[in-house]
Amino acid sequence: MAGKALIVVGLLAGALCCVQAQFDFTLRPIIGILSQHPLDSILEGLEDKNYTSYIAASYVKHLESAGARVVPILINQDDAYYENLAKHLNGFMFPGGANSITSSSGYGAAGAKIFQLVLEANARGVYLPLWGTREGFQMIAYLAAGEQNLTTPCSAINKADSVTVAEGYMDSRIFTQMPDYVIGYLTFSDSTVNFHRKCMTPENFTNSGLTDEFKLLGTSFDFDGLEYVSLIEHVALPIFGSQFHPEKSQFEWKDDEVHSAIPHTPQAIGVGQFFANFFANQARQNSQKFPTKEEETAALIYNHKPFFTQATSGFVQCYLFR
């Protein structure tokens, strides 16, 4: 058995060497999460309310659970700030929230700049992935469609749901890497949770011309039976988005009537963990790093502490920035 084990280890090491030779690769991925203007409910329970942006800690834990580290990305910064991060990070995430996805908000303006930087990096051959959740997903679609508003009113607040896979779904990076049992969890159980009043219908997705750039991988249904796009992937670039929240099942525990649908089943945990692992692995295909260890350490979210915000908001914890 010992000999066989050594052979397996050797094969795995050889495979990793091949991967490293084929791609730029890192085993220390750092992903930037875009912050946004804080909701009143987040600040309500704090004595000091002098904060200009926040990130829900569940997004941070989601990525950390897959072996990635996180850098908070502040809003309302100059272009040089975002350009510098795009040269040193291994990936970006646009989280959900209640901020505008247009340039009228700091979140939307920074998102537009980062989206352009991601496109430019990939055009140069730098594998720089981007994930969007909820409004982050909608912002990716909005920007990719030339700033068209593709959403329509819908009713999917506090709704656990399955995902109906689209034709050709297996012709995608997400599903070719998803184990069969996780596909089963995703499609046959209420393993995702949704908190949105706006959504993109398959018709809007198609009519916008996004089908030339993105694959529609899955849909879900709101409380009124309206079908909406729930999962997309760019046809060529490492850009992905979900209308549902992969991070909540593991890390959000508010159980009032507005958040009672968050599934904490083993199936939902498995689905959420898959998406964390998937995106962290995308980030590992980028070998960018900060010029010095000191700059890396100064940028990491470890320099900030999360606040307990569950008493007044839907988030157990939030990171807040000035």
Rank of each mutant, 00 (worst) to 15 (best):
A298I: 05
G218F: 06
T312P: 01
Y81D: 07
D161L: 08
G209K: 06
D255N: 10
Y82E: 07
G67D: 00
L27I: 13
L34T: 10
V193M: 07
S103L: 04
G67P: 00
L34G: 05
T151A: 13
V163F: 05
Q282A: 05
D79Q: 15
I239E: 06
Q20R: 11
F251C: 02
K113F: 02
Q36C: 05
F223W: 00
V258L: 13
I262Q: 02
Y54D: 02
W253E: 03
L117T: 00
C18K: 05
G209M: 04
F244W: 14
E147Q: 12
V71W: 10
G91R: 09
E295C: 08
S41Q: 13
P179M: 09
A110K: 08
S242E: 06
A98C: 05
P306F: 05
T219Y: 01
E296Q: 15
G270P: 07
G168S: 09
S172P: 02
R284Y: 03
L320P: 01
I140D: 06
L63C: 07
I157M: 10
D180I: 03
T265M: 03
F92S: 08
A299I: 00
V126C: 00
K113I: 15
K159R: 12
A13L: 15
I55R: 00
A13W: 09
G3N: 11
T187R: 14
H88K: 15
A121D: 09
K248T: 11
T26L: 06
H37E: 15
R28W: 11
I140T: 04
V193L: 11
G111V: 07
F94I: 15
A5N: 12
G272V: 11
G14R: 07
S35D: 10
F137S: 02
T102I: 01
P72F: 05
I301K: 04
L6K: 12
D190A: 14
S103A: 10
V165R: 12
T152N: 08
F321Y: 10
H264A: 11
T192E: 02
C17H: 12
F308R: 14
G32K: 09
A121K: 14
T151K: 06
S155R: 12
A5C: 05
L89F: 07
R28V: 08
P29A: 01
A56T: 14
A311I: 06
T265G: 01
A112N: 04
G97P: 06
G91N: 10
L39Y: 02
H264Q: 13
V118T: 03
C17D: 15
Q250E: 09
T201E: 12
P291M: 09
V8I: 15
L143F: 07
T206R: 13
A66L: 06
G67V: 01
K215F: 12
V9W: 11
L150H: 06
T206N: 08
P263I: 06
V8H: 13
C318D: 14
E135D: 13
S41Y: 04
